[in-house]
Simulated assay, not measured.
Amino acid sequence: MFGGGGGGLDPRKMKQMMKQMGIDVDELDAEEVIIRKSDGEELYFDDPDITVMDARGQETYQVVGEAQSREAGSTGGTDGASAVESGDAGSSGDAGSSGDAGIPDEDVEIVAQRTGASEDEAREALEDTGGDLATAIQHLE
């Protein structure tokens, strides 16, 4: 993460320093990650290692694994549900019931809590941004 040769800091010391700076690091258990590109291609990672870094409310996800490519819309072993929709920031990875337009209720709650907006406003912002949490939050702030 910091430095080049891996001979730098002890991982425990690194985690302790990051904690002192207000940065929390956790592992996220996921079976698959899908990235949909604007050109219609999808990159997917089976059984990736995911690290979530929360620096004062700004979450950063690091996905480590071997990306495979496929045409968008083809399901490589999933039931058609997007991994992006089924996993969200701060959840245990369990998707709750979806409301209108397939937006997970957990996503609506996250946007509403982060912005102070009503759930209806949060759902509308998520629908306008195609379910993108970060963009919906920015739009409402």
Rank of each mutant, 00 (worst) to 15 (best):
D94R: 12
S38C: 06
G87S: 11
D132Y: 03
D39Y: 06
T60E: 03
R114M: 14
Y44C: 00
K19E: 14
E31C: 04
R36W: 06
I137M: 06
A117C: 00
G130W: 02
G4V: 09
G22L: 03
S92I: 13
D105Q: 12
V52N: 08
D10L: 05
E66M: 12
D29S: 13
D128E: 14
G76H: 14
Y44W: 08
E124C: 03
L126G: 02
D94Q: 13
D46R: 14
K13H: 08
G96M: 05
T135K: 12
K37I: 03
G6T: 02
G4P: 00
D79W: 08
G5Y: 05
G130Y: 05
V64N: 13
L43K: 11
E42I: 05
K13I: 05
E141T: 13
D26S: 15
G5K: 09
T115L: 09
A72S: 11
L28I: 15
T75L: 10
K37T: 08
G131R: 02
G87L: 14
G130R: 06
E124P: 04
S91G: 11
F2V: 06
A95Q: 08
I35D: 09
D26P: 00
E42G: 00
S98K: 14
Q62G: 05
S74K: 14
Y61A: 07
Q58G: 03
D120P: 01
G4Q: 03
L9G: 00
L43A: 03
V63C: 01
Q68C: 03
P11A: 10
D105A: 12
D100T: 06
K19H: 12
E106W: 14
R56D: 12
E31N: 13
E32T: 11
R114D: 06
E109S: 10
Q58F: 15
A89T: 12
I35F: 15
D128Y: 04
E85C: 14
M21W: 09
A95I: 13
G93N: 03
P104N: 02
E31S: 15
E71H: 09
D105P: 03
I50E: 04
D54Y: 08
I110N: 07
I23K: 00
E66H: 14
M14H: 10
F2A: 08
G87V: 15
D24A: 08
M53V: 15
G80K: 08
V33G: 02
S74Y: 10
G102V: 02
F2Y: 08
I34P: 04
D49H: 12
M1I: 07
M21H: 08
V111M: 03
Y61L: 10
A125V: 00
P48R: 05
T51C: 01
A136W: 06
V84I: 13
S92T: 13
L126H: 03
E31F: 04
Q113V: 11
G77W: 10
H139W: 09
A72P: 02
S118Q: 05
K19A: 13
D46A: 13
A125I: 00
A112P: 01
P104G: 01
V111E: 02
R12V: 08
